[in-house]
Design a protein around this nucleic acid. Structure first.
Length: 570
RNA sequence: CGGGGCAUAGCUCAGUUUGGUAGAGCGCACGGUUCGGGACCGUGAGGUCGCACGUUCAAGUCGUGUUGCCCCGACCA
């Protein structure tokens, strides 16, 4: 490709709309342009990267027995009504009407369509396992699209659905996908980690997320320090070993103490000169059916996902000041479990092990001292409801947990019979019994993977593409386009590299060298070949990998071979 | 959906406080000098100041409304 003809408008300045580095660099390097909030046009360089990623995905899906199909983006409302998700999915579902006033949705995911397809075509255990996938645009009217391609309203996703006769079959399919995903992200040159996760609204039992590790990631991953153990989980999901240490302290009688104006754990701890660890934090929540008081140790954070799962409710919000006043009889900041009525009390197991603790007293400006669970208050539910923090013990082996930030680029779910039951997808087994098909679903955010790769691979000058997904492998830069010898040599080498099957750009623009170098760094070609005057006289060119920036000189004979070797090493 | 901010040339922004005939840098076009890390000089093109209504002799500037975009929180590939 000649840079002169390549449509990749680069920007010198950072566009005001971009906050995160992948968004900034995709705009600056001429990969994307915004069309609407969370909706982007992919320019030629982006398309090349996306196709590379898609190709890797296809190969790994096919390798595991997946078969590619293409389902419609436009889906009739009846399917969603049948599964019950037309009402449940909420405003995130893009809805539209046709000219006959019939309801449709733009597909945010395809369980409905594929399950309907399969229920009509798969009737026997002999037709399974079946793995079907597609790569196409998905539509989700996000509450807040942001971070460029990391969270768009239109994005490219690979979604595969597995159909098996039983849980054992699903287990096999699930493991295949786990393996495929591992290969995919490895081949893309990304540093990633599969972690245990919460299944959220999609439902199902087991689920893993694949996290690309990057400081800008929104998700927090906890992983075991002990490599042999290998435990890793999203912090929403991470669990703890059962609490065992009960303090030998003797129980003291409960008393009340004035704590004027101390609403937060920090304020109370400071005022009473105690450690936050001796305080029981009481937070009130409202669900669609009840008010809940959640108790955790003062230095802990409540994990609202765990709490939501524990309660089995659909909606969970912090209680408003009014509700708090009504339930506790005190202002926000003085709630405590002692004598608390009119709400369900959920406690983290750690709380039950506390002795002579401090809590709010449900009276303004007063706290209770020497509170002891069981003796002073009853708990309705005891369940792990707190965030696990780095430094705490691994639930599997007890070693220390470490923390990293990650971008979720893929997730695999065991769906079980949730959709096959709702949509009536059954098969007959050997004995003629009708059973629901057991399903799994497996997604990869392709466009997000591209952005995540940049989040993980960039420097102050621009993108550093892993060679496997780079839009081009090599850029050939004649330093001066006025020097005909340089240009001639550059063209010759460019041709030879093309013939060797290496994706190469020749920067033949009549620009100064500095401009070309800056653009080469910005776009992130893995390897740069610079052809200056010395190259012409000595027949040696400069090779400079983008990542290291180390310049090596190479003779022009056999350049293809040297380049190929360097690229494999990248 | 709640909270905050922004909207002026292709891009980044000034001008709004105190209403008075539209600005800079970059980019673009042309000419010249340059030429190994975003050169310099000159000339030029380019804007119904997001949109609507209002106040006023006069609105980019003040008021009301509206739309779009961005950021922070609860959801997701």
């Amino acid at each position: 490709m000649r840079a002169k003809e390549l449509f990749s408008p680069t920007l010198r300045e950072v566009p005001a709309e971009a906050e995160v580095v992948s968004h900034q660099l995709l705009l600056r390097a001429g990969f994307i342009r915004r069309t609407a909030a969370g909706v982007y046009t992919y320019l030629p360089l982006a398309i090349r990267v996306l196709k590379k990623i898609e190709q890797i995905v296809r190969e790994e899906m096919d390798h595991q027995g997946g078969q590619e199909i293409m389902m419609p983006i436009i889906q009739p409302a009846e399917l969603w009504q049948e599964s019950g998700r037309w009402d449940v999915y909420g405003p995130e579902l893009f809805r539209l009407k046709d000219r006959h006033d019939r309801d449709f949705a733009l597909g945010p995911t395809h369980e409905e369509v594929i399950t309907t397809l399969v229920r009509g075509e798969v009737n026997s255990y002999k037709q399974m396992p079946l793995l079907l996938y597609q790569i196409q645009n998905k539509y989700r009217d996000e509450r807040r699209p942001r971070f460029g391609l990391l969270r768009g309203r239109e994005f490219i996703m690979k979604d595969l659905y597995s159909f098996d006769r039983d849980a054992a079959g699903l287990e096999v399919s699930y493991r295949k996908m786990h393996e495929a995903y591992t290969s995919i992200f490895k081949r893309c040159g990304l540093l990633f980690r599969p972690v245990e996760a919460d299944s959220g609204a999609i439902g199902g039992s087991d689920t893993h997320e694949f996290m690309v590790l990057a400081d800008s990631g929104e998700a927090i991953v906890l992983y075991c320090n002990n490599q042999a153990c290998g435990y890793a989980a999203n912090n929403e999901k991470a669990t703890l070993p059962a609490e065992e240490n009960i303090s030998g302290e003797t129980l003291k009688p409960l008393i009340r103490a004035a704590t004027p104006g101390c609403r937060t754990v920090e304020e109370v701890a400071q005022f009473l000169r105690i450690s936050p660890q001796t305080i029981i934090k009481t937070i009130l929540y409202e669900t669609e059916k009840e008010v809940v008081a959640a108790l955790v140790r003062g230095d802990r954070e409540i994990n609202e996902i765990k709490l939501l799962n524990t309660l089995g409710c659909l909606r969970l919000e912090l209680a408003g000041a009014k509700t708090v006043q009504q339930i506790t009889g005190a202002a926000v900041g003085f709630a405590g479990p002692v004598g608390l009525k009119g709400c369900t009390i959920v406690a983290d197991p750690e709380v039950l092990a506390m002795v002579n603790a401090v809590t709010g007293s449900n009276t303004d400006d007063t706290h209770c001292l020497n509170v002891n669970p069981t003796r002073d208050f009853e708990v309705n539910i005891t369940k792990d409801i707190r965030m696990v923090q780095a430094g705490e013990p691994c639930p599997h082996c007890g070693s220390q947990l470490l923390e990293a930030k990650g971008i979720e680029v893929g997730q695999i779910f065991k769906l079980g019979d949730k959709y096959s039951k709702a949509l009536g997808a059954t098969y007959l087994d050997e004995s003629g019994h009708s059973l629901p098909i057991i399903m799994g679903c497996y997604g990869i955010g392709v466009s997000r993977t591209m952005a995540a790769a940049i989040e993980q691979n960039h420097d102050n000058n621009g993108i550093i593409w892993p060679a496997a997904i780079a839009p081009f492998q090599v850029v050939v830069i004649p330093v001066s386009t006025k020097d005909e010898k340089q240009v001639a040599l550059a063209r010759e080498l460019y041709q030879r590299l093309l013939e060797a099957g290496i994706e190469t750009v020749i920067d033949d623009r009549p620009e100064r060298a500095g401009v070309k170098f800056k653009d080469a760094d910005l776009i992130g070609y893995p390897l740069r070949i610079t052809i200056g005057s010395k190259a012409v006289s000595e027949n040696r060119v400069e090779l400079q990998p983008r990542r290291t920036g180390e310049v090596t000189l190479a003779p022009t004979q056999n350049l293809e071979k040297i380049v190929l070797e360097m690229l494999t090493a990248l």
